[in-house]
């Protein structure tokens, strides 16, 4: 479904991403783990078109989108929940969802159906539909961000650190939700620092180190790799 071939990405003069390749197949949950500053968010921004690679190609369903503007990529069926949630703080919950469904705004029945679906998935959003999003708690904002991304019926959903800054109890909640979305047929690419939780729900995983893919394999393989265990999983103090 998504195939990234040898991309390089730079911020100004500094090359953040060096020759990164990976792929996501239909129906999978793929996770990219890595330390802070390894370039995870940069990869996500590049796939969604907010940044442009200096080299390499990004194939989405066979079409090269490396040079396509972000808003056109969304139209192809690729949605992202950005890092730090980024809900529109001065819009109500409902208006956030309306904006999420901007692309299907002409298809009223579909739009209604999606809204209902999101309210079923996240009942708290229905309760707060008239509330301004900036006043929601962090966990609720994350749910709204996911729901907003799902409004455009994406084939592939990108999630950038959905657990960051959330209380432990919400973290579990969010991962349950991701699993549910996957079961309903959405393909998911996830970037996470909480390697342990993420690997539990993933099919395959990549490890990103200083802008390069250091390791790739099934989630089980990665979870049992001694180096990954040492640097990202257990046996550490904090």
């Amino acid at each position: 479904m998504l195939k990234v071939n040898n991309i390089h990405v730079s911020y100004g003069k500094v090359e953040i991403i060096k020759q990164v390749s990976f792929e996501v197949n239909q129906g999978e949950v793929v996770v990219i783990i890595g330390a802070n500053g390894a370039g995870k968010t940069t990869i996500m921004k590049t796939v969604t078109g907010l940044l442009k690679p200096t080299q390499g190609e990004i194939l989405f369903e066979g079409q090269n989108i490396a040079r396509t503007p972000a808003e056109k990529i969304v139209k192809l069926g690729l949605a992202m929940c950005p890092e730090g949630r980024q809900v529109f703080p001065q819009h109500t919950v409902y208006e956030n969802l309306v904006l999420g469904g901007y692309l299907i705004r002409k298809d009223k029945p579909m739009f209604q159906k999606n809204i209902e679906q999101m309210y079923n998935l996240f009942p708290i959003l229905k309760e707060r539909s008239k509330q301004v999003a900036g006043t929601l708690s962090g966990g609720e904002q994350q749910m709204l961000a996911i729901a907003r991304a799902m409004m455009s019926n994406p084939k592939l959903l990108l999630l950038d650190e959905p657990s960051a800054g959330l209380a432990p109890i919400y973290v579990k909640n969010i991962f349950d939700m991701i699993q549910k979305l996957s079961e309903q047929g959405t393909t998911i690419l996830l970037v996470e620092q909480m390697a342990n939780m993420a690997l539990k729900i993933a099919d395959r995983a990549y490890v990103l180190e200083t802008g390069r893919i250091a390791l790739g394999g099934t989630a089980v393989e990665i979870m049992n790799d001694p180096k990954v265990v040492e640097s990202y999983l257990g046996s550490k103090k904090y």
Partner: peptide
């Protein structure tokens, strides 16, 4: 544990 830490996830959650 119920409101914040979550059950049996205490250690992993960091």
């Amino acid at each position: 544990i119920e409101a914040y830490l979550g059950k049996n996830e205490v250690v992993e959650a960091c």
